[in-house]
Design a protein around this nucleic acid. Structure first.
Lengths: 143, 143
DNA sequence: CTCATGTCAGATCAACTGAAATGG
DNA sequence: CCCATTTCAGTTTATCTGACATGA
């Protein structure tokens, strides 16, 4: 690979992300799901029933993509949508019992990916890694 | 943002890469270039004249994308292509003097991005960060 | 009138695929 | 015949834009 990129932090992060992305998308595909689906299920479990727009903001997914993902999640029986009682524009999305189990299942898939992703680091290195990457990740999107 | 993702290394790396990508593409766009162009110029400077396929392998860019990028680089006078003397399939690509200056200019753009990207870390943290990210980045694509 | 919501069609961008034409 | 190279057209995936209808 290029010498000029060896020592660049942005390049190393790019490689790490590339590996992360491969592990994640393969693991979710093998599990019959997608990262977007996981994030929406997680948002609903964390905050309770939400409108689609709220679910999108909480999970960091565009509303138009939320629409598409919920189509599949509804289809699979993991979520249910009903008209919002007090706001006719909104649809209230809630997790089903089956959706809760699906979330738990995907949690284990995700944990397994973390283990493989962090395999090159020992325990104290992982701690350092979290601290450092978080500092960078928080920049520009703090709070 | 989602609690479930706060502690996931893959998510933090995703955020870091997102920031890196924003800084990089904005900086290169403002400089009137693109990351692909930089990488191809860097490959030619490092290895001397190359066929397009070789330049692609060295810079990690698909041959079809190399074709497109070289169209622009040739147009701008940063590279020149001629038939390979001993292999009629290949085109030999070489850096022009102007291309060499362009590479130097983009080097400063890239350095500036590194500075801003790593701003949240002090000197010893940066050192740690390089060590740790490299361990992860090298996994799956070692050597 | 304005804004938010849900939906849809499509743009964008990086990365990749497949095939054709040419030559080793 | 098989493989490498260059080129082109087009696919994929995630992300985002713009527009529309509806309702607050």
């Amino acid at each position: 690979m290029l010498k000029r990129l060896h020592g660049r932090a942005t390049w190393l992060v790019n490689l790490a992300q590339s590996r992360s992305h491969t592990l994640l998308s393969e693991a979710f595909a093998e599990a019959g799901s997608r990262p977007y689906h996981y994030r929406i299920l997680a948002a609903l479990e964390q905050a309770g029933p939400l409108s689609q727009a709220e679910a999108g903001r909480l999970s960091g997914i565009d509303r138009s993509d939320v629409t598409v993902a919920l189509e599949a999640l509804d289809q699979a029986g993991f979520t249910e949508r009903q008209p919002h009682p007090s706001d006719g524009r909104k649809k209230l999305v809630r997790l089903t019992a089956s959706g809760r189990r699906e979330l738990a299942r995907l949690d284990t898939v995700l944990e397994d990916v973390q283990t493989r992703f962090l395999a090159p680091l020992n325990a104290s290195e992982r701690q350092q890694f979290f601290t450092l990457v978080r500092k960078i990740a928080d920049e520009g999107a703090p709070e």
